[in-house]
Simulated scan of single mutants.
Amino acid sequence: MEVVGRLLGLLALLLVGTGLRTSGVLDTGRTARLNAVAYYVALPALIFISTYDRAIGDLLSATLLVGSLFVLFATVGLAWLVHRNRDSRPRQSVAIVQSYHSNLGYLGLPLVVATFDADVAAIASVVLGIVSLTQVPLTVLILVSVTGSETRIVREFAGLFTNPVLLALLAGLGVGSSSATVPPLAVSVLDIVGAFALPLALLCVGASLEIDLPEIDFGASGSVVALKIVCMPLLAWLVFSVLSVDEATFTATVVMFGTPTAVSTFVFANELGGDEQFASLNVFVTTLVSIASLFVLITLVS
């Protein structure tokens, strides 16, 4: 019942964000500022606090690296096969990237931290780093190649090196792998700040998205949901079962790959010639459906 209550709370926050946008409380400017607080403050604090007391050798293994990348690229291949014949290239590009690009930072890691123990949370932080470093440049390349968009790819890739999420992960693993210590007061403050990552992110998701029902492509959106919410976590379950990883690694990877499509795919679609309305719809729908699917996953792995 505790998991049910937590996931229903996530749904409530998502709908509150939508309501605040509709009422005008969260306009574009306020949503952007709220998003900045979540992305540059709360989420990095959560990542650091999950990894600062653990050595990198205890968390990052060849099995975790290879397994995570296999799940990611296998899903990319399936998405390409499923969506390769779509008439609209902007829609095709978005459908492909949204079938694999996971919301690991805004939803995955905060949910894992709130639901499982510290061992699982630490592994989830590493999964976030591995997959984010891969899926972000991959998404940019696919959008640019399919849509023919003219953009400065070097600029997009350079953004990875100033990504606060990845910097926080490196900082946490650096401290954990050294003899450095973090003052207890700083740990307490970061713990409090990190607790706001999930609610802030959900409010931003709800406030950022709009749906035009007459324009819904049920076939395309249904395929995205099936690949992202069903196929990807199932593939992770099979791969990490075959690899015979420990319980913490299995739990972290399955739940993280079961997260919905990342909000950032909407931003990338808007900047790189994708179908932004279609992207907006898919982020909302996969997030909504994942409330139920994550309950199933969490129940099974628990």
Rank of each mutant, 00 (worst) to 15 (best):
M1T: 15
V3W: 15
V3N: 14
G5V: 08
L7N: 03
G9Y: 00
L11R: 03
L13M: 12
L13N: 00
V16P: 02
G17I: 01
G17A: 01
G19D: 08
G19H: 12
G19Q: 10
R21E: 09
V25G: 10
R30I: 11
A32T: 15
R33K: 13
R33A: 14
L34G: 09
V41D: 07
A42Q: 05
L43S: 00
I47Q: 03
S50W: 04
A55R: 12
I56S: 11
A62S: 12
V66H: 12
G67N: 07
F73R: 11
F73T: 06
F73A: 03
T75C: 00
V76E: 07
W80N: 08
V82F: 01
R84Q: 14
R86A: 05
R86I: 12
S88V: 12
R89S: 13
Q92I: 07
Q92V: 10
A95I: 08
A95S: 09
A95C: 10
Y100H: 05
L104K: 02
T115C: 05
D117W: 02
D119A: 04
S125R: 02
V131G: 10
L133W: 13
T134Q: 02
V136D: 08
V136A: 09
P137I: 11
P137E: 07
T139A: 13
V140F: 15
I142K: 00
V144T: 09
E150V: 06
T151V: 14
R152Y: 11
R155S: 12
E156T: 09
E156P: 05
G159Q: 11
L160T: 04
F161A: 10
T162S: 14
N163C: 02
V165N: 10
L166T: 04
L166K: 02
G172E: 01
G172Y: 04
G176P: 02
G176N: 07
S178Q: 02
A180P: 06
T181E: 14
T181C: 11
P184R: 09
A186R: 06
S188T: 13
L200D: 09
A201L: 05
V205P: 07
A207C: 06
A207S: 11
L209F: 04
I216R: 14
I216S: 09
F218C: 08
F218A: 11
G219M: 11
A220S: 14
G222K: 14
V224Y: 00
K228E: 01
K228M: 06
V230W: 08
V230M: 12
M232T: 14
A236L: 10
D246P: 03
T251W: 01
A252W: 06
A252R: 07
T253K: 12
V255A: 03
V255M: 02
M256I: 02
M256D: 00
M256P: 03
F257Y: 01
T259L: 04
P260H: 05
T261N: 04
E271R: 15
L272S: 01
G273T: 03
A279P: 03
V283W: 00
F284I: 01
S290T: 00
S293K: 12
I298D: 02
V301W: 11
